[in-house]
């Protein structure tokens, strides 16, 4: 008690009832930590010293223009496919919840069909769509057609991949969005309606923003998954990240180093996407919890503050308490 009252002024005041207990020693944890460190050292050593990894080749190709071009294609494909998927997903989810049975059934059938077939098969089908419909035209159904396009010229490998990935993603996003919408209490809709808001206003201003809290985490997951699923388009010769490195190693036979180049880039982009997801979740968490989760920067600052306080306190406490 005396040491508590004798705390120097510059330290934060210690309340008389504050507990200063000696923490329990966790021996098991220390053993586990030592074991993991040892494993990491072994693994790191082998990766670093094994010449066959050819880190020099990895370094050489890491920023090569062909790899970077492939990376850009992968990013474009991911972004466009996810954009198609999200817009389509919202549309399909709202349709699925429509009171009109024909509309909701149409949505159900779409989801059933696109989730029922492998995306690789869908990519191949879109790539070969010209065999099914050589000419695509726009006009009045069963009536005159105004615009004709040649499927073979417009459905390039990139477009085929984009269509397949985007349309497939729409089916998955629809279920995610639907889960989000039904997670919002019915009272929210009733309150909005009782204020005279239309169905569209209620959906856009009240329901969807609150559904986002449920929608964002799995959507982040889908985006990260999409980034890697785009590598499937290498089968239809789209020069994405994977196909670009494949083209290089088919000539120089440096398979492993070039696959490492692609892998490292995938990991980097995934990391960036995860950071984006954190901030997005934080944004849409407004009002759901009393306190928003701290950003990494805030957490670092708080820890620094704690360290500084501890550093000030420790000499004072040890000097007088003992």
């Amino acid at each position: 008690m005396e040491s508590a009252t004798a705390t120097p002024d510059n330290a934060s005041p210690i309340r008389p009832d504050e507990i200063k207990a000696i923490p329990v020693r966790h021996r098991g944890r220390w053993v586990a930590a030592a074991f993991i460190l040892l494993l990491a050292a072994v693994l790191g050593n082998s990766v670093w010293t094994n010449k066959r990894f050819h880190w020099d080749i990895v370094r050489h190709y890491f920023f090569s223009s062909r790899v970077l071009h492939g990376l850009v294609v992968t990013l474009e494909l991911t972004a466009i496919s996810m954009a198609i998927g999200i817009v389509l997903g919202i549309l399909l989810a709202v349709m699925r919840l429509s009171p009109n049975p024909l509309v909701s059934t149409a949505s159900w059938i779409y989801i059933w069909l696109f989730r029922g077939t492998p995306v690789l098969v869908q990519i191949l089908l879109w790539y070969n769509v010209a065999a099914l419909y050589p000419r695509l035209s726009l006009g009045i159904p069963f009536g005159p057609q105004f615009v004709h396009i040649n499927a073979a010229t417009y459905i390039t490998p990139f477009v085929a991949g984009m269509l397949a990935l985007g349309l497939n993603e729409g089916a998955y996003m629809a279920e995610i969005v639907r889960a989000g919408i039904i997670s919002v209490e019915e009272g929210q809709t009733e309150a909005a309606q009782s204020l005279g808001m239309t169905r569209l206003q209620t959906m856009r201003r009240i329901v969807l923003p609150q559904a986002m809290r449920v929608i964002v985490p799995p959507t982040g997951n889908e985006t990260i998954s999409m980034l890697k699923t785009t590598s499937l388009v290498s089968v239809i010769a789209t020069t994405d990240l994977l196909y670009s490195v494949q083209l290089i190693y088919s000539v120089n036979y440096r398979t492993i180093p070039l696959l490492l180049v692609a892998s490292i880039w995938y990991v980097i982009v995934t990391t960036v996407l995860s950071i984006g997801q954190f901030y997005l979740e934080r944004h849409f968490g407004r009002g759901a919890t009393r306190d928003l989760p701290a950003t990494p920067l805030q957490r670092i600052r708080r820890n620094l503050l704690w360290f500084r306080r501890a550093a000030v306190e420790v000499p004072g406490a040890s000097g007088e308490g003992r």
Binding site: E190, Q193, G196, T198, A288
Partner: peptide, 24 residues
Amino acid sequence: DAEVCRERAEIGMVFQRFNLFGHM
């Protein structure tokens, strides 16, 4: 729908469970 909304806009309602918009 639009006409129903216009009618509702002139009637205030307070619910047992408040139903405030949680994100606002």
